[in-house]
Amino acid sequence: MEQIKKSLNEIVKSLISEKKVEYVFGFEEGTLPLKSVPLYIEKEEDIDRMIWNEYCNLNLVKFLLEEPHGKKIGIILKNCEIRSLIVLINENQINREDIVIIGVPCSYGIIDFNKVSKLIGGKEFTEFKKNGNDYTFKGVDFEKTIKLQDILSNSCVYCKDKNPVEYDYLVEAPIEFKTIQEEDIDEYLDVIEFEKKKPKERWEYFKKELEKCTLCMACRESCPLCYCKVCFIDSNQPQWFDKTEDLSEKLLFHMTRAIHLAGRCIMCEACTRACPEGINIHLLYKKLRKMSKDRWNADKIELGDPSVLGSYKIDDPQEFMVKED
């Protein structure tokens, strides 16, 4: 961690002092424990506030969408976030030349605050300590030690794609472990496990999860791939939704959003971490990514790749078609 920090400092400092960029996107410490805030590093003294750790939970690429073209911006990213930037570059939303990517190898993954909250019974912790992979949370009337793998974001638990694939500067640091699990596990293990359940169980699971949804749109707003000027749920001509917060509407919203993200979602899981109710909505997107792999062998997104739904092969599988007798 120290090594990353040092290397980051040097890179950012040189970018700022040599005026290679207008500013660098990073994180600073939040006002509550285990929370971070996006930081615009414009001056050298801002660098001291910069942090880089396992609770930098947002995907900063989202913020790039707000910036006008032609402005040179530096941004510190992990590999999953770099892939989301690649999707946006592929979809002509961002110019590659505008962005200076500072890639950081990701060893830990990101902690999901919602998971912590659930594990300590919705109580509040005022401080936390870490000792290797053990995190100890302390509140007014409790102290609880939790293993890192229990509070890591789901996608980080299974992630194997930790080295930046595209960067202008690379922070050189050893990756401490490949996945948090010791044995070599499948990247899509959680999806595979879920698929093994009975259909009714799966349906009940989603029904229960979506019941909690408040349609606050934190998932949409934290997702860099949701950049439509008018989202289908907000459109009023035609108005697809009565917006009465029926469960059927929530279901429709999340299903349609999943379809829009099919094969595009790069599993940064910023959506699930942003969800105030801690709904594991990311599972849907991960499934569709797995599907892209199974059906079209297109689950790794590289610069210049066409989007999954914006391309086709003549011999794509079509076993689901109804055939005449």
Partner: peptide
């Protein structure tokens, strides 16, 4: 090529239904 694109979209929907346990 419209129907090739359509086919991809349909397969997404089909798999999503399957995954969510919807008939």
């Amino acid at each position: 090529s419209g129907n090739y694109y359509a086919r991809r979209k349909f397969s997404v929907l089909d798999d999503l239904f399957e995954f969510m346990g919807i008939d």
